[in-house]
Design a protein around this nucleic acid. Sequence first.
RNA 1: CGCCUGAACACAGCUAG
Length: 419
Amino acid sequence: VAAYTTLIRGFCKANQMDKAYATFRNMIAVGNKPDVVLYSILIDGYCKAKNLKAALSLLDDMKTCNIAANVVTYSTLIDGCCKAGQIDKANILLSEMIKAGCSPNVVTYNSMIDGFCQSGATDMALKVLAEMESKECHPTVVTYSSLICGLCKAGKASDACKLLKKMPKSGCEPNIITYNGLIDGLCKANKVDDAHGLLDELLKTGFTPNVNTYSSLIDGYCKIKNVDLAVKLFGGMRGFCSPNVITYTTLIRGLCSSGQINSARKMFDEMNNAGIHPDIYTYNVLLKGLCRARRSEEARELMKSMKTNGCKPNLVTYNTIIDELCKIVRLDLAFLYLEEMKVDGILSDVYTYSVLVRGLCKGRRHAEAKELLNSMKTQGCTPNVVTYSAIIDELCKLQELHHALSYFEDMKDNGCAPE
RNA sequence: CGCCUGAACACAGCUAG
C-alpha cells in the first residue's frame, strides 16, 4: 500500500487523475485495502483538478467501505468546495464532520475563512475567526494572512491593519505572504499608492520583497492606468528578484491597454530573449491588445505563431479572437474560429455565445441571433444578463419593443436579474 | 502505554454588454 500511495500521490501532484485513479483501482483489484490517507490524497487530487464531483463520490466510497474519514479528509474537501466557490457545500460538510464526531481543526477553519474572503464575505470570515477563538483553536499566520488579504480587497484596509497589529499578541509573526497579500489587497482596492508606500516602509525594516510583491504592484499601477510607474517598478525590482512570466505578462497587458502595442511587442521579444517562455496568458494578453488596436491581421498571425510555439489556444483565446471578428463584422471568420475551437475539443461558454449574439445582431442577422440564444440553452450554457442585453438592445434599436420585453421576461424567468 | 512515518489551509497575470 505504501508503494501504491507514493505512486498515486505522484500522479495527483502531476494532475494526472486518470492515471491516479487507474492505479488506485488496480491496487484494489490485486487485493490491497486503501486507507484513509490514500483516500485523502485522491480526494485532494480531484479537488485540485477542479473535479469536486469525483472528490465527493470518493467520500461516499469511503462510507460504503467503512473507512472513517478524518479531519484531514474533511478539511481537504471543505477546502476544495471553498476554492470552487461552493461555500454552502463546505458548510454542509462542516456540519457533517462534526456530526460524525470529527472536530474541525485550524486548517479546516482556515479554509472556511479563505473561502469567505475570496467571495468578499469578510464578515462571515471574521465570524469564523471568533468561533475559533471561542473554541481555543489558535489562529496561525495562515489564518491572519487570508483575512488581511480579504479585508484589503473588500476595501477594509483599516480592519486589516488592526489584525496585523494583533498578530504578535497571538504568537504569530507576519511573513512575506502576509505582506504580499496586504499589498495585493490594497492594489485590488485601487489603493496602489498606499501599497507602494507600504513596500517602501517595509524595505526600511529590512524586508526582502519577491517577484509576487512586484507583480502585484505592477498590476496595480497598470490597472489604474499608470503604466509609467509600472515600468519603473519593473526596472527597480532587479535588485531583489527577477521578473517571471507573470510579471512580463502583467506589464504587457498594461502597455497594451494604454495603447502602447509596439512597446508591448518589444517586451514580448525581450522576455523570449531572457529565456522566459510566454504562456497562454501572455499570448491571450497580447492577442487582446492587438484586437483592441484593431490590428486583426496581426492577431490572426499571433494565433498561428502561438501554435507553432507549442502553446495551444484555449477558450479565452478563441473568445478574444471571435469577439474581435464580430466587432469588425467578419462573421465568416468568427464562425471559422468557432469551428476550429470545436475541433480542438473546446466547449463554448457564455462569453462565446454573448459575443456571437452581438455580432450576429451587428451583422443584421437577427433570426440567427435569436436561434443562437435558444441553442445555447440546449448546449447546457445558460445565457446571462450580458447575453440577453445583446438581444434586447438590438430589438430596442429595431423598435420591436414587445419582442424586447418578451426577452426581458424570459430573462427574469431564467433567474437572471436585470441590472 | 509512549514515540515516530505518508494526506489538507494563506500572496501576483488573460476574454463579452
